[in-house]
């Protein structure tokens, strides 16, 4: 099937199989930040934005993204680096495998709710699993980033 997908603001036309998953489509297009961490739609590592909403790309058919905008970490470089530095500052991560999905969903949270409470942060990011850490470092990193954002605004 022929699809037109706007991937990171670039229009891509491709002929895809009906059961090709969006994760495999974006990887074929070179967006290798998007990874598979499970087979059960549970880990959040494959998070991309579909029309600006975070979704699990492992669970969406590529054909269903026809005519839509898809954003991956590659398309959010500056924002991601800015935020990522705060996570690194906390030494929050060990292997770093969970990072791309985590960063994507954290950015989605900040867009939806620029001033989240700790409870709201935990709830929004509950679907991003990390096998190495206890999430405390990530939480501190997020809070430090939000503080910095706030102080930058005034």
């Amino acid at each position: 099937m022929l699809v037109n997908i706007i991937l990171n603001e670039k229009k891509i036309s491709a002929d895809v199989e009906p059961d090709l998953l969006l994760i495999d489509f974006v990887r074929e297009q070179g967006c290798l930040s998007v990874k598979r961490g499970c087979e059960t739609s549970n880990c959040g590592l494959c998070t991309v934005f579909l029309e600006d909403r975070p979704v699990l790309s492992c669970s969406v058919l590529a054909v269903r993204a026809d005519g839509k905008r898809v954003t991956t970490l590659e398309g959010l470089k500056e924002e991601a680096e800015e935020f990522g530095a705060f996570i690194a500052d906390q030494g929050a991560e060990q292997c770093g495998f969970c990072n791309p999905g985590f960063v994507m969903n954290a950015l989605a949270l900040f867009r939806e709710n620029p001033d989240p409470s700790e409870e709201e942060i935990r709830e929004y990011l509950a679907g991003n699993l990390c096998r190495c850490s206890g999430y405390e470092g990530q939480l501190r990193g997020i809070q430090a980033y939000l503080e910095w954002k706030k102080s930058n605004r005034v």
Binding site: S41, L50, L56, S59, E123, Y124, L125, G127
Partner: peptide, 12 residues
């Protein structure tokens, strides 16, 4: 609904 997997899941 809020305990079902995660926001990215519930968006689908």
């Amino acid at each position: 609904l809020r305990h079902i997997v995660g926001v990215q899941f519930r968006n689908l």
